[in-house]
Structures are given as structure tokens and as C-alpha cells.
């Protein structure tokens, strides 16, 4: 064998050994258990904290409001559409005050006139329909067709 190879072959062997050793040490736990990924990551993704509690959670305490809503056009809507995420409040009712949006624009997100959603939902021209008043001054958002005087 030529003297060059006598030196090079062991050198490359050491290199490959070090590479395999490094690889052995660096592959994280649970990698490849189910596929080419760290399987523990599935559990980590499951463990993230929730922000939205869900309608049923709200109804556990606020059953009166939930019942009230069922009698009108907003039946079936989730409370958190308007009141925002409520998980913090659900876990500790004293903390985590929810929002009570009273701006016309908020109602307009669904109900402002837009030709794209014509025939799909009740629409109001915000510039034309009592522009100086808040929607909720007349419409109870839980019972929208009950108009206050």
C-alpha cells in the first residue's frame, strides 16, 4: 500500500468515527419514534395554554345570558366573539376582565353594508343609520331585535 494511504485512511476513519459519535450524542430524545421528528414535540404542542374558553365554559356561570341569547337572532353565537378570550377569567373569575365593545365599528364588522355579503346578513349603512349613537344604546346585543326606546 502506498504510504499516503497508510496515513489518510486512519485519518478518515477517525473523522468518520468522530462524526458518528457526534451524531449519536446530538440526536435528541424521542427523535424518530413515530417519524422523522422529535415525537415529544407533539406533546409540547398539546401543552400550550388556552386563551378562548369556549361557549359552554361561559354558560357554566352566565347561564341566564346564554339562555337569553338563544331567544333571538344571535342564538348560537359564541360569547367570546365580542367579549374576547375568556380563559383567564374562567380560571379566576375575579381576574381577567373581559371586554365590552361599544363602538359602532365593532358591530359594523358583521353588519356594516358591504356588497360582498349582501343577502347573507342584516346590514346597516353606518354613516346613515343614527350616526351619532352607539348601536347598543338601542339594540341589546344579546337580543338584537329588541329595540330599546
Amino acid at each position: 500500500m502506498p504510504p499516503q494511504l497508510k496515513t489518510l485512511i486512519p485519518l478518515f476513519a477517525i473523522f468518520i468515527f468522530l462524526f458518528l459519535l457526534g451524531r449519536y450524542l446530538l440526536v435528541p430524545e424521542s427523535f424518530g419514534e413515530q417519524g422523522h421528528y422529535r415525537f415529544n414535540s407533539v406533546a409540547e404542542n398539546k401543552d400550550l395554554s388556552l386563551q378562548y374558553a369556549g361557549r359552554d365554559a361561559c354558560a357554566e356561570c352566565h347561564d341566564d345570558k346564554a339562555l337569553e341569547m338563544e331567544s333571538d337572532m344571535h342564538a348560537g353565537l359564541s360569547c367570546e366573539i365580542c367579549h374576547g378570550p375568556g380563559m383567564v377569567h374562567y380560571d379566576n373569575p375575579k381576574a381577567g376582565q373581559l371586554i365590552i365593545p361599544d363602538q359602532r365599528e365593532h358591530c359594523g364588522l358583521c353588519h356594516a353594508t358591504n356588497l360582498t355579503r349582501v343577502d347573507k346578513i342584516a346590514q346597516v349603512d353606518l354613516a346613515d343609520h343614527n350616526p351619532d349613537q352607539k348601536c347598543i344604546e338601542c339594540h341589546n346585543p344579546h337580543l338584537p331585535w329588541e329595540i330599546a326606546e
Binding site: P2, P3, Q4, K6, T7, L8, L11
Partner: peptide, 15 residues
């Protein structure tokens, strides 16, 4: 040179 100091014609031919 990695310690391969042989420069005899035979080894150089291998190079």
C-alpha cells in the same frame, strides 16, 4: 504533509 515525507519516485508516482 501529515508526516508522509517519502518523495521517492515510486511514492510520487502514487501521488
Amino acid at each position: 504533509t501529515l508526516g508522509v515525507n517519502d518523495i521517492s519516485p515510486k511514492t510520487v508516482k502514487w501521488d
